[in-house]
Simulated assay, not measured.
Amino acid sequence: MTDNPRIGKDVIESLTLGMYEDCRFIYREYIQNSADQVDKAVAEGLINAGEDEIHITINPKERCIVIEDNATGISSDKVIPILRNIAHSTKKRGEDKGFRGIGRLGGLGYCSKLIFETTFAGEEVKSIMTWDADLLKQIINDRDNSEEAVDVLARVTDTIHKKEAADKHYFKVILENVTSDELLNVERVKNYLSMVAPVDISSQFIYRSQINKFIKDNGLKDDAYNIYINEEQIYKPYTTHIYKEIPGSKKAIDDILGVDFLLSKDSDGNIIYWG
């Protein structure tokens, strides 16, 4: 008789605590999750296009980070199946930006507690799930402990419900006692996300209107979201100058004199690529 397969606790470390070499990637993951839900909220008529808000609040003094969106949220009956299970995502490959169901747990490697707070339109309750990151690390580092992964997940999570207004809909991520100074450096996070996050081009870039016209004229879709860091909206910081970094300063070494556009279609008129 063959024993049933077992999944040890160490797999959790690979999928959570040890997932990223660059801690700033967790911002990208949480923004990506919010963006997917914003798309759904717009498609379902919950919010209008352009009404989305993704707020990142960084408090270095309290060593706390909060990331909140005004998208669909998660209904109370789906909170545990979606938020506690690992690699069990309901997202669709090729449609959603994320699909593996592990990105939301990346923050566990950089805080003592990871909290998910969410409510769904029409429900008078909000769900709060807390992951005890310190306990998780303690369990994983205890080599005399050979618990199964699912048992560990049950031990390190706790879910409660509280009253909430029925018209509210949001998803909030809270990282308490953040261990990384890099994640708490507001200016560095702004600079990083302005380059990698799906945000609009700065109005100071003189070719912005030309680019937007090309996108509109060709019926293209360029996903951009309203993302704020400590209440300041961020944009792609493109300029018409190209700089070379030098010690303590930077030197302009070239200029952008125009923008070329690329677009190719197949024999049926479907767009293969554009840029």
Rank of each mutant, 00 (worst) to 15 (best):
K162I: 04
H169Q: 10
R155M: 15
G107Y: 08
S112N: 15
K97R: 14
L83Y: 07
F120H: 13
F171Q: 07
V156H: 07
D181T: 11
L114G: 01
I80P: 01
G98H: 06
S112V: 00
V173I: 15
E182I: 14
G73L: 01
C64W: 00
I139N: 05
E187M: 06
I80T: 12
K137G: 06
I140N: 06
R155Q: 15
V199M: 04
G73Q: 01
I67T: 06
F120C: 10
W131P: 00
N145H: 05
G73E: 03
D132Q: 09
E68Y: 01
H169A: 15
T90Q: 13
V66D: 03
S180Q: 12
M195G: 10
T179D: 09
D167F: 09
K61F: 10
K190S: 08
K91R: 14
P81E: 05
I65M: 07
L183Q: 08
V186H: 01
E148F: 12
H169F: 11
D96I: 08
I160Y: 06
D151A: 12
I174H: 04
K113Q: 15
K126D: 09
E148P: 00
K97L: 15
I140A: 03
C111E: 04
A166N: 06
D132E: 08
T119I: 01
H161K: 11
F171N: 08
A197E: 01
V178L: 09
I128V: 15
N185G: 07
L105W: 06
A154Y: 12
Y192E: 09
Y192C: 10
K163D: 12
K168Q: 11
G106R: 02
I82G: 00
K126Q: 13
E187R: 03
D77A: 13
A87Q: 11
H88S: 15
S180M: 08
L108C: 12
L83N: 10
V152K: 04
S202D: 13
K172P: 02
D134H: 03
A197V: 07
A121V: 11
D144E: 15
N85P: 01
A71G: 15
R84W: 04
P81F: 10
E124M: 11
R155S: 14
H169G: 03
E117R: 11
E124Y: 05
D158F: 10
V173Q: 02
N141K: 15
I74G: 04
L108H: 05
R143C: 10
V186L: 03
F116S: 03
G107D: 09
E95C: 05
D134S: 14
T130K: 09
V66T: 15
E187D: 15
K61C: 05
G122I: 03
V178R: 04
F99A: 14
S76A: 14
G98I: 10
N185E: 13
I201T: 05
L135S: 08
N85E: 15
V196W: 00
Y110D: 06
S76H: 13
I128D: 06
V178T: 07
T118S: 11
L193K: 06
T159W: 02
K97A: 10
H161T: 10
A121F: 14
F116K: 00
T179R: 12
S202E: 02
D181P: 03
